[in-house]
Design a protein around this nucleic acid. Structure first.
Lengths: 223, 223
DNA sequence: TTGTGAATGTAAGCACCGATTACACGGATT
DNA sequence: AATCCGTGTAATCGGTGCTTACATTCACAA
C-alpha cells in the first residue's frame, strides 16, 4: 500500500481552541476509532483478516500506536467483541420489552430477535460467537457477557412452564436446545451453508422464523 | 499472523532400502504429510493458527516446498477440509448402516453419530464447518461434499413421514432445523460456550443425546 | 505562570508469515 | 546413457504482531 508520507507542512502553532489543528499530535479518541475500524474490517473480510496495522492505517496513526491502548491484537478483538455484545444485548432486551404476551410467546420473541439480529449483523455475530478467540480469559471470570441473556431466557421458560405451556419439565435441556438451534442457524448462515440465501435476506429470515416456530411447537404442550 | 511456538521436528527419514541415506532429496509423500501436520496444528491451536511454514517444519522440509503441492495456504486448508469431510462422512454412513430400525430411529442414529463425531473430533469438525474459508470456490461447483449427507437425512425423514411418524409434513423445515440444532450444538462446544464440559466429555455427549431426543420428540407424531 | 510527570503518539527494528523466483537434484522415460 | 521434468532448496519480498527508544502534548500542581 501507500506509505504514510505525512506532509508535515509546518503549521502555525495555534493552540487556541477556536480553530482545530489539522494534525493534532494526540488523536483524541483513538481507542474508539480503532474499535470501529476493526469492526469495519471484520465486515469486509472476516474476523481473521483484521490486522492492527490496517486499523491503525485507517485511523491515520502509526502502526505502533494501537498498542498504547491494547496490549495485543487479541485484546483489540476482545474489545470489539464486547462492543458487539453490548449492541446485541441492547437490541434483544429492547425487542423483548416491547413485545409482551404469554411467556411462550415472549420466548418466541426472544429467539426471533436473536435470529434477526444475527442475520442482519453477521459481522457482529461472528465476533460474538467464538469465545475461544476473544474471551478465553474472561470465560471463567466475570461473565458479564451474555450470561445475562441466558438467564433471561431461562426465566422466560420457567414462566412458560409455570403457565402450563410446556410439555416437558427439563428446562435446562429446552434452553440448551433452543440456544443450539438459533446459534446453529445463525452460524450456518454466516459460515456459508446457505449460499442461496446470500442474495435474498428476506427468505432467510422467513426460514429462521419457520424453524423457530417448529421448535416452539415441539416443546409446547399439545392441544 | 502471530508467531508460532517453536518446535524441533527433525523427522527420521527412511526411503532408500539399501543404505541409510541421511537425506533423500525427495520426500516421498510430502502432500500427505503436510495435510496430517496441518491437521495436527489445527488440533493444537485452532484453524487460523495453522501456518504453512510450521507444517513444512514438521515435515522436515524447506518453507517453500509445500507450495509445490498447494498453490496457497487456503488450498492446503481446503485439502485438509476434504480429508476431514471424508472421514466424517465415512463414520456417519458406517453408523447408519450398522443401526437399522424404524425411519425415525435411524434419523436419530444419524444425528447422534453426527454429534458424537463432532464432540470427539472437534479439530476436524472445526475445519469442516466454515465453508467461507475453505470451500468458497467449490461451494457452487461439484458439491461432492456433505451434500450427500444432507440428501441422506432428507431421505430418512421422507421415510419417517411415509411411515406416519412425523407430526408435520414440511420436510425441508424439519431438515434445516435438525441440521441447525446439531450444528449449533457442535459449534457451541468447540467455540467454548460449554466451558464446564471441557473436562467431562461424557457429560457433554449425554447432553447432546438429550437435546437430540428433545428435538425428535418435538417432531414426532404424538402417541 | 511555569515545571514536571504521565499519556500518548512516532520511528525503528525484530521475528514470523505467505508467496514468488531462480536454481539444484534425481527418478523415470526414451 | 542422455534427457526431461517433478520436486526439493535458497534467497527474497512485502505484510504482520509486537517491542523498545524517543518525541510531543496534556493535566496538574507549586
Amino acid at each position: 500500500m501507500r506509505a504514510a508520507a505525512k506532509s508535515s507542512a509546518a503549521k502555525p502553532r495555534r493552540r487556541v481552541s477556536r480553530a482545530p489543528a489539522p494534525k493534532p499530535y494526540h488523536h483524541g479518541d483513538l481507542r474508539r476509532v480503532l474499535i470501529d475500524a476493526a469492526l469495519q474490517l471484520v465486515g469486509e473480510g472476516g474476523a481473521e483478516t483484521v490486522s492492527v496495522r490496517e486499523a491503525a492505517r485507517r485511523a491515520g496513526v502509526s502502526p505502533g500506536a494501537p498498542f498504547r491502548h491494547f496490549p495485543s491484537r487479541d485484546a483489540l478483538m476482545q474489545a470489539v467483541s464486547e462492543e458487539a455484545q453490548r449492541r446485541f444485548r441492547a437490541e434483544i432486551e429492547a425487542a423483548l420489552a416491547a413485545a409482551p404476551g404469554d411467556p411462550l410467546g415472549r420466548f418466541r420473541c426472544l429467539g426471533l430477535a436473536y435470529l434477526r439480529w444475527a442475520m442482519r449483523n453477521p459481522t457482529h455475530f461472528e465476533i460474538i460467537s467464538s469465545r475461544r478467540l476473544f474471551d478465553h480469559d474472561k470465560a471463567a471470570g466475570i461473565s458479564s457477557d451474555n450470561a445475562e441473556l441466558i438467564e433471561l431466557s431461562e426465566r422466560t421458560l420457567a414462566e412458560a412452564l409455570a403457565a402450563g405451556q410446556l410439555r416437558t419439565v427439563d428446562l435446562k435441556q429446552v434452553q440448551i436446545a433452543g440456544r443450539a438451534l438459533v446459534y446453529g442457524f445463525a452460524r450456518m448462515n454466516i459460515d456459508g451453508h446457505f449460499p442461496r440465501w446470500g442474495v435474498d435476506a428476506a427468505e432467510a429470515e422467513q426460514a429462521a422464523e419457520a424453524i423457530l416456530d417448529l421448535f416452539i411447537e415441539g416443546i409446547a404442550k399439545r392441544t
